[in-house]
Nucleic acid binder design. Sequence first.
DNA 1: TTGTCTCCCTACGGGAGACAA
DNA 2: TTGTCTCCCGTAGGGAGACAA
Lengths: 583, 583
Amino acid sequence: MAAAEAAEKGRESLDPLIWKACAGSGVRIPPVGSLVYYFPQGHAEQASAAPDFSSVACDRSFFLCTLVNVQFLADPDTDEVFARMRLEPRISAPAPPPERSVVEDGEGKGDGVASFAKVLTPSDANNGGGFSVPRFCADSIFPPLDYSDDPPVQSLKILDVHSTQWDFRHIYRGTPRRHLLTTGWSNFVNGKKLVAGDSVVFIKNKFEELFVGVRRTARSGGPLDISGYSAKPLIDPPTPFSRAAKRGANSGSGEGFSRNCRGRVLPEAVVEATTLAGLDHPFEVVYYPRVGSPEFVVRKEVVEAALRVPWSTGTRVKMAMETVDSSRITSFQGTVSCIVQHSPPFSYSPWRTLEVTWDEADVFQTVKRVSPWQLELVSATPQILTPYPAMKKPRTAQNQELLSDGAGPSTFFRMSDFSTMVMESMSPPIFSHNIFPAGMQGARHNPMCVSSLSNFLPDITLRMYPEKLNSNNSLPTTSHVSTELSIGCASQSGSLSPPSQNSIYYYGSELFGNAAVNNSSNVMNSSLRLFGTTIHIGQPVIADDKEGCNNNAVSVRPYSISFPYPQRQFHDDPPQGLPFVET
Amino acid sequence: MAAAEAAEKGRESLDPLIWKACAGSGVRIPPVGSLVYYFPQGHAEQASAAPDFSSVACDRSFFLCTLVNVQFLADPDTDEVFARMRLEPRISAPAPPPERSVVEDGEGKGDGVASFAKVLTPSDANNGGGFSVPRFCADSIFPPLDYSDDPPVQSLKILDVHSTQWDFRHIYRGTPRRHLLTTGWSNFVNGKKLVAGDSVVFIKNKFEELFVGVRRTARSGGPLDISGYSAKPLIDPPTPFSRAAKRGANSGSGEGFSRNCRGRVLPEAVVEATTLAGLDHPFEVVYYPRVGSPEFVVRKEVVEAALRVPWSTGTRVKMAMETVDSSRITSFQGTVSCIVQHSPPFSYSPWRTLEVTWDEADVFQTVKRVSPWQLELVSATPQILTPYPAMKKPRTAQNQELLSDGAGPSTFFRMSDFSTMVMESMSPPIFSHNIFPAGMQGARHNPMCVSSLSNFLPDITLRMYPEKLNSNNSLPTTSHVSTELSIGCASQSGSLSPPSQNSIYYYGSELFGNAAVNNSSNVMNSSLRLFGTTIHIGQPVIADDKEGCNNNAVSVRPYSISFPYPQRQFHDDPPQGLPFVET
DNA sequence: TTGTCTCCCTACGGGAGACAA
DNA sequence: TTGTCTCCCGTAGGGAGACAA
């Protein structure tokens, strides 16, 4: 069984609310009983080495399943939380029982659970045993201090995910006054082997009991490469989860666990799960929630809704991401720069098929390729205020060469089986849209405007995604539109509006929680900047993984990086430039 | 396979000479290819909990095997050496190939290997990082210091059993001058988790390379109970060899390994080995050499020779034991006080059937029950100089009740199958003795003299052990006899002499090495003290394990404890009263 | 508000001779 | 000869305010 790989890990389930707080509020575990899609590619991203799928007879790259069981667990060595999910493949899709999962629901704060995460600064992790407690954390999570004392001080008893108690001295001192954890903190840092960049999560439940969780950063020394997934040459060398380093001081110096962002799951477990799924047998998967490791078990409705959207190069999108302190959700905006086609056996997978150039170039570029359901459309009708001089010659010819490469014309999603499933489960009204006339191939290659990717869709894809084509004609948008100067080619007005703003939001809120809804509204009511790319503007590109859309070609050119996100005022980003995704 | 239990332990074989030095010179591993007996009881003594033999169909309690392979290994966690032996059961006994094992051979010092063991004092283990190097160790093992320096000092690079190097500063300083290890010693103590009572073994090979081994004491806190083995209620609770205690400082405090004298071997491995042996399938066993854990894989000749000896209550015996510094072998003398009969399924086993009251009451009583091949006969004809007033009434009646308990009369060794094998392999001359007339049962219950146990042997046993009965008539002894006051009832002159002094010595020297021969001679030429017991005097007792010969009944009464063993002048016993067997 | 610095106090590690068993 | 003590020094841990980002 797949369970063997984590056989001795995580004896008992955690309180789901505590688990969720440790995992981060952005993590969505579908409710038990719901219909989900399982994506082996996403599973493989969590493996310590590249799984060898050559033995898998089935060539499907996603599997419709019923989620029959979820265990909320924690790694005994690293304290990282993970979920073990039992899945039963479903050929046909019976009506899913309407059930809601605590973890899928929004904040969990309504349950009296509050949490605060902080990325450890070098001072927190290295120096003489002190931890700077952000004021918000002290005020909202810790019991109130008696400020009539001088200095105000108290002892905190905090349980970790293994119910081991840690004692900390919480003191409010210094000039100016600040909250600190002193005695006990050093023990904790050593015991948990924390380094700068790791996060601690302080959690208070409705009984005012305190808990502490840990999120590990991948050890610095190499950028976290999660930009894309290629089935062949998975980068990381196998890092066995060795428990060595119990030797004397002279020998090994290891910490006893890997900090690799992969490495928690055995490659064999992925292959096994995929094999079992292909045989329509029940199987188990283990999911470690991490920023940059999106869920690979996703609600059926979420996936299918996302695939109804007419994603194309130049589409303006936004992606919700929780702040590092897990207190809020922020949206980041960008432009679809590339439609990725994976290598076999995942040619037909929608997993991470959209490559996005993010507006905030510095912090977000490491997550370049995302899956459609991670994105929301930005409902903007951008006004092209100034023509942008093309820095490079439009590569129309080259892209057409690319299209004619290989075996036949590339398609957006060539997954006929998936499409079939999508269509089976579609609600009738969606089918009532008009079919957009085909035959637009190569119609307008104006660098100032974006042709829909559907221009390149062959007939079969048009038949499979009728509503996508139709949506290209639906308008108008109701969102506020930025009046800031926009550089480059934004999506053409009227050609990118989502078919149904409501349906997008519905699933978006499913995916990202209620906070995301509120936040998205905020963003929509805020100013909106748009960036373009110099190359792929107006040119839908279907790129193979190996060929790729490398950054040289995409060439992001931010014009202005000041952007008033009111939501970020309480962020706990470490100031020394740790990549956002590592927190 | 039995190997699974130690699957990840001990990757590679050590140099057998280093292994032997770490194990102690008293350890004898039979040579590969030789015929041996395997005793599951001895194997079970090394298990972490009482093996459950109920599933073992075969009721044999020992197995004639060929030793087909030996690996000399070291535990990666504790540094303790152990041997993995592969055994092939043999129904018939072909001529064993004459081969000698390095480890079975005597000192190993002829190979240029020298070693010195020291029991760590509290100062060595606890205090501010120093180790008092005995002068002999510094002179014989360490490279010579340049005594013209002031102070003389050098750096020692010493490899442990995993080839990890440890650096020590060796200095000769203080008034009066003494050898010390300073810098590096504290690291070593912490790294190896040494405590007072543990031993370190410094070893020099013929290339003058230095090695260090570790022998662990059972954690003080309870006396080491290895006095006897009962199949049913094995005392120790299961102490899983957990690698926990990787947690923070607040939680568990474990060391990562058990200091239990049992605990290295899984009970299931013992059952598995016994099961396979019973099916005449090859199997593997792991043996951890420890004082008090005698070898359970013993050369066939050694066992059979020992069983030819007419052991009986009152027999004067001696047992060789190496000094704690492994530099010498010392003999301890005592009197057989009890013949133990085990509970099923080991009723027919010779394992630890002899209970001995040792002359040196304080240091040796913890090893009360021994196997015949661990003992040598003392060829003495003790003179009873003063009648000893019985402190307790002779429990003749009670003992006779005990004899009539259970299913029929108890026997010396009721192991018909073993006897058969012994007889098959016996050399013809041994069979040429006369059969002693039977029917002496209950003849003389004189507390001043010891009746031979053979008095109680039923006919079947007489047939199996003809030479034992015959030996009761063989005399005289040629040994020196003590003129010290002897208390209690010693064995009657003329009734205990061994049939062949030479044969006893031959196997004795096989078992304990050449040094034992020399040493034994020394002892024989020294004065000889004899002690008796107040209870079992003159009463051959066959006791069941559960009923036992408890100490209250046996009641050792030493009269004089000064005993000039010249061999002990260089001992490294810690002075604070650690039991001898724990070193 | 909070990250980092420096100061400074204390505890502990550990190296030395004194001294005694 | 060597176990243990006490002394004493150096370093590291860590708790405090200063100061600046």
